[in-house]
Amino acid sequence: MSYVAILGATGDIGIELANTYASHGHAVMVIGRNTAAAKTLSKQLMAQYPIKSMHLTLDVNDTGAIKVFKRDIQQLDIKGVVSVVGYLGDQQKAESSDQETQLIINTNFSSLTFVIQVFSQYFKTKKSGFFAIITSVAGDRGKKSNYTYGAAKAGLSTYLSGLRNQLSGLNIPLTEIKLGYVKTKMSQDKQISKYLSAEPKEIAQLIYKNQQKNKNIVYLPLKWYWIMKVIKSIPEFVFKKINL
């Protein structure tokens, strides 16, 4: 039985993604840092859909756990990995706390690349597999409210572009999904216009569709492609004065 691994599956978008893959008949490997939540989700999937599911515990910032994880997955049949892992953090706090800065950068970028590396090696040995990695439109241009997070996501985007380049021709497609606002616990404190924010379920289904089509880079919802085009085109001397 080959599984789709969902990394960070216990978050709002992760739960919807796990359900979407399961509803299309895929066996789902729920990976999360909270064992109890991962188990609950995994059992819910098995109860609701005629599929196999299992759960694994992994905190991407725990290097020891990554080692064990690397060993264990060699004995499992995984056909693809979808990563939803992310941590918005608190920009203000990060400005005075090294710890918070580190947590934002590690969770969204450095630690995550270690895990992606593990899967990349695994798929190369298997000569098949796919990646779908969630990044953010925040990586397209830094703004004062979340630039540490944005920079980490931008770093990840660059990393993914290089990895896609390396994997091309090896039957291992890599889809990057740049998300705009989604109504989740990550964005709950923000005042976002209804027009700009999407529902996690709708987003999960779009991610699934785009991954299945082996797209390279997609903005979801699509309008964010245009929004970011505009935002990126604003000259820096203007942009630095905008309150974003």
Partner: peptide, 8 residues
């Protein structure tokens, strides 16, 4: 896989 499945 056995161990992970049995847990569920």
């Amino acid at each position: 896989e056995l161990k992970l499945l049995v847990a569920n």
